[in-house]
């Protein structure tokens, strides 16, 4: 029982990291239907920015979080302008290959400058933990930070999308780009906003993961990027609460599979669930079913 409780906590903290990355993924996909493979790498850049800020400028956790978010959102906009805008009219597959090339560029460009070795993130949040039930259940304070920041960012995002003008424009563009343009929405600017926000979220996730797991390296974005994407699909891609739900769901599944003896096949189970979800509810667990247009 205690063990189960501990596993639930483990699952929640792992899941909230997936959720945080998945939020950005889902936004970008929702608006331009592009599997932005570079998203995981923006998250990696965010972690390195946070690392640089905390080690050489000796700033605390929150300033580094904010700086990293700003840098990443600028990076996101640049990537969109330089790489994705020119191929907006091309086929889906050309767009995907472009996203992969951006991803490789970020990974190996970063590796060229910082080398492949793992860096250790300074511990800027202290290492207190909450011990429940005679120490048999442990909650790290960093877990609480991560879950709280994920929820705050999700709520903020929902607010931006539901209540602000820019958010309304985003929804309009994702629904029908041409119609939105005819109604006077500046599509280019809206897409830039989306990338800025999505990338800022990735930057935040990068710093949080850096602080939580302490290690960062230039290829750290690949696996979480993929997992976050799965999470976004499970939750229903393009749906904000879906990304958070999908992240938590995936984190919990992985944890429970490991907990009950399947650690060898943990990732296989994650992918199997993904495929099941796709087959049974292609629009995701929280997504709306969209009728095919003829």
């Amino acid at each position: 029982m205690k063990e189960l409780l501990q596993q639930v906590i483990n699952g929640l903290s792992l899941g909230s990291i997936y959720a945080l990355i998945a939020l950005g993924y889902t936004m970008v996909y929702g608006i331009i239907n592009l599997i932005n493979f570079a998203h995981g790498d923006i998250y990696m850049v965010g972690a390195y920015v946070g690392f640089a800020v905390t080690t050489s400028l000796h700033l605390g956790f929150f300033p580094s979080l904010v700086i990293s978010m700003v840098v990443c959102s600028i990076l996101g906009v640049i990537i969109e302008k330089v790489a994705y805008k020119p191929i907006r009219g091309s086929s889906r597959i050309a767009a995907l290959i472009t996203a992969i090339s951006v991803s490789l560029f970020l990974e190996y460009g970063m590796m060229y400058f910082v080398k492949a070795e793992t860096r250790t993130f300074p511990n800027v949040l202290g290492k207190n933990s909450l011990k429940l039930l005679d120490g048999s259940v442990v909650i790290d304070y960093k877990n609480i930070y991560i879950v709280a920041i994920t929820i705050i960012l999700m709520v903020a995002l929902q607010y931006i999308i539901r209540r602000t003008k820019a958010g309304k424009a985003m929804r309009a563009v994702s629904l029908d780009r041409e119609a939105a343009q005819l109604m006077g929405v500046n599509v280019d600017r809206t897409i830039s906003y989306t990338f800025a926000i999505g990338s800022a979220l990735a930057g935040a996730a990068g710093v949080l993961v850096g602080v939580y797991y302490t290690t960062i390296n230039p290829l750290m974005g690949i696996v979480p990027g993929l997992k976050a994407f799965i999470a976004a699909v499970i939750g229903g891609i393009g749906v904000i609460p879906g990304a958070v739900f999908g992240g938590l769901f995936l984190g919990m599944i992985e944890t429970m599979v490991s907990a009950y003896g399947g650690s060898l096949y943990k990732d296989a189970v994650a992918f199997a669930i993904l495929i099941l979800v796709l087959l049974l509810r292609p629009s995701g667990l929280l997504g709306r079913n969209i009728k095919e247009k003829v």
Binding site: N33, R92, L96, F229, A268, F271
Partner: peptide, 25 residues
Amino acid sequence: IPTLRLKGDYLAIATLGFGEIVRII
């Protein structure tokens, strides 16, 4: 047979998932 009911990116992801499952096995 099961995956080809999916379209576009969803199919891509499902096949990616199968690829990873084969590798893990």
